[in-house]
């Protein structure tokens, strides 16, 4: 059911990251997001601790979702980081 992501947690522990994203073939894993601002077929906007992440693509869907983590699947074409927000 829920993926454990040992490797990511371990890395986060070592690097002491507040949040991170991992991109795989057709999947994007986001850890420690604050808020899901926008969700549509072509765009997902996430509020992180000190930035906003704008994910653009096609047929975007959320495979798994918890309070801290998101697993997004679809044709991911572009990931933008906006530190102004």
């Amino acid at each position: 059911m829920k993926k454990l992501h040992f490797r990511e947690y371990f890395e986060n522990y070592l690097y002491d990251l507040q949040d991170f994203i991992s991109i795989y073939e057709g999947h994007l894993h986001v850890f420690n997001y604050q808020k899901l601002i926008k969700l549509s077929e072509n765009e997902i906007i996430l509020q992180m601790i000190n930035k906003e992440i704008n994910i653009k693509g096609q047929y975007l869907k959320i495979k798994q979702m918890t309070k801290q983590e998101l697993l997004i699947m679809g044709n991911i074409m572009k990931v933008e980081f906006n530190y102004d927000k």
Binding site: M1, L39, E41, I62, M65
Partner: peptide, 17 residues
């Protein structure tokens, strides 16, 4: 998309959909 946004807003964990 609307349903998932709503679920996210009330902190529902989704394992599959």
């Amino acid at each position: 998309y609307k349903i998932l946004l709503k679920l996210n807003s009330i902190d529902v964990n989704i394992y599959n959909n």
